[in-house]
Every structure is written in C-alpha cells, then in structure tokens.
C-alpha cells in the first residue's frame, strides 16, 4: 500500500508539469497584457517606464524562460506577487480558502445526509411509487441550472419573504456583535449558498446511492440474512447499507473538481469572498500569477480527490489491494 501511494504521488509530478505548461502557454500567448500594465499604458507613461514595468513583471523575457522562472519559484510555494495589489499570491489564496472550504464541506455533509436515505428508500422498491417520483425529481434537478435556482431563491426567500440576507457574509453592523452573534451572523448568510450548492450535487449522488443499494440488496448474503430470520431493519441497515456505502465513499473525492467550478458562479452571485470569486477577479484583471496559482491549486485538489477516492476504496473494501 505504501509503495502504491508512493508511486501514485510520483505520478502526480508529470501530470502537474503538463497542466502548468499548457496553462502557462495558453494564458501568456493570448494577445493583451495584464490590466495593471495596461492601465499604465496611457499616453502619460513614457516608453521607458513601460519597459521597466514589463521587466519588473518579467514579461519581457522569452516564454520558456518565464516558465522556468515561475517553476523554480513555485516548487518553493512562492507563486509571486499579485499584479492587482502587489501582495503575495499565496497569502491572497490562503485568506480566501477557509470560506470556500467551509461552504463546500458543509454542503457535502448535507448532500450525503439527504442522498443516503433517499437512495435507500428508492431502492427498497425499484419501480415503486417513491422510486418513480424520485426519478422524475432527479431528472428535473439534473436539468436545473443551479445559478438560476440561486437567483430564483434570492428573489423569493430574500426579497419577497425577507427571511434571509441576500448577499455577502456579514451584516453591516457586524463589528459591534458579540463573538457568538458573529458566528450566527455568518451562518445566517451562508444558509442559501450552502442550500444551493447542496442541491447542485444531490441528484447525482442520490442516484448512485440508489443503484449501489439495489446492487447490495440483490446479493446472496442478503438472502442468507433474511433466511436466518433477521428483522428487515437489520437486513437493510446492517447488511445492505454497509455494503452499499462502499462505492459512495469514493464520491467524496471525485466531487471536488465540480464543487470548485461551481464555487466560481455561486460566490459571484452571493458576493462571497472565497476562492471562486478570487479566481473570477484574477481572470477579469488578467492577474497571471494569481491565475496560474489557482489553476495549480485546482489541479492538485482534483488529483488529491482522485487519490483519496482510490485509497478510500481500498480501505473500505479489503478485497481491493493495490500492488506497489
């Protein structure tokens, strides 16, 4: 297992190199220059100063030299300074990370809490009334653009009913709240984003749960369990569910890239200062160091997710053994 892990971790290196090279080329070859440099291109700025600026950002060097420089710094976790405000990119990302992780982690927990019972219930009588109803619901949920759902809910819950705050993560008078009230306030602001993110992945995961449960319930050991006279509850929850959960565990790792992509849209709708919104800002201002760092982060998280999926698969199912 250790040897397998080691090999997988080594395997990440070429993939990461490939991803960064492709992204670097694509981002830098495009016409146009970063906004900060662009702004300084107004007629008042002399060509000498412009050249100095280019030099400062290393934009005057050939592309492969720029990439080599970037790579040398990046392996030491130095992703350079943001073009937008001159602060280290790593710090800007770290500032924004907790919120995105919080929203996605809470949603993921909600998704599983909802999807597992839904899947079990639907699997009890495949083709039954409940199963058919959820099938229809899942089809619709799959087809709903989640950012549209967010807009509808904002309109209904925040504006018509006035139950929840419409955007941001803090109330205006946040500064004066007691610590407990501050936590409550942030939680209050995050209800809608978490709800929408949850609905976004609920359809897929509840379907997986259903088919996994149907599969488990058709196994011979279920017949055995029934034959020895166990109550149906024990059969379903102890013998069926435990086995059905195995493949579902791996979905946690695999859902990471989707959540990251989704956070770009949700965070910009709800005005949440998270990673997704940071990436959007970076893209709009062509903040190259920030864009590259976020692409690397996204790729690392995607690969980490895949690895977690494979490892947890082996962990929950001892029949799977990876050779080193």
């Amino acid at each position: 297992m250790i040897a397998y892990l080691f090999r997988r971790l080594l395997g990440i290196i070429p993939v990461l190199l490939g991803i960064t090279i492709i992204s670097f080329i694509v981002i830098h070859l495009a016409p146009g220059k970063p906004a900060t440099v662009e702004q300084s291109l107004n007629p008042k700025v002399s060509p000498e100063i412009r050249a100095k600026l280019y030099k400062l950002y290393g934009l005057d060097k050939p592309l492969h030299v720029q990439y080599a420089d970037w790579l040398k710094r990046s392996v030491r976790f130095d992703f350079g300074d943001s073009f937008a405000d001159g602060r280290p990119v790593a710090r800007r990302i770290l500032e924004r990370m907790p919120l995105t992780i919080l929203v996605n982690a809470v949603s993921l927990v909600c998704v599983f809490l909802a999807a597992i019972p839904l899947g079990i219930k639907a699997a009890q009588k495949p083709g039954g009334r409940f199963d058919n109803a959820t099938t229809v619901a899942v089809f619709v949920l799959f087809a709903v653009p989640t950012f549209w759902l967010a807009l509808l809910l904002m309109q209904l819950v925040c504006i018509r009913l006035g139950w929840l705050p419409i955007s941001g993560i803090k109330s205006l008078d946040f500064e004066y709240f007691s610590p407990a009230r501050k936590v409550m306030d942030i939680g209050w602001h995050l209800i809608l984003p978490v709800f929408v993110t949850t609905l976004g992945s609920l359809a897929g995961i509840s379907r997986y749960m259903r088919s996994s449960m149907i599969e488990a319930m058709s196994q011979p050991y279920i017949v055995t369990a029934r034959a020895k006279g166990l109550p149906e509850r024990t059969v379903v929850y102890k013998h069926g569910l435990r086995n059905a959960l195995l493949p579902i565990v791996t979905l946690v790792g695999l859902s990471i890239p989707g959540l990251l992509g989704g956070s770009v849209i949700f965070e910009s709708i709800f005005a949440l200062p998270g990673l997704g919104r940071l990436f959007y800002e970076a893209v709009m201002t062509r903040d190259y160091p920030l864009i590259m760092a976020e692409v690397v982060l996204g790729a690392v998280l995607t690969m980490a997710g895949n690895l977690i999926a494979d490892i947890s698969y082996a962990y929950v199912d001892p029949r799977i053994r990876y050779k080193g």
């Binding site: 490939g18 492709i22 146009g32 990251l260």
Partner: peptide, 24 residues
C-alpha cells in the same frame, strides 16, 4: 492515454474561464 489523464485532471472550468477571458 497519458495525455488524456492530464486533461482529466485539469480544473476544466478554471481553464475555460482563463482562456475565454484572455482571448476575448
């Protein structure tokens, strides 16, 4: 297949956003 694996690890939405933004 190696190249396909690389592409599958791409945070696609990030890449698309970056490309679309720089390319107009």
């Amino acid at each position: 297949m190696r190249f396909t694996d690389i592409m599958l690890c791409f945070p696609t939405f990030f890449l698309i956003l970056a490309v679309v933004a720089v390319l107009e």
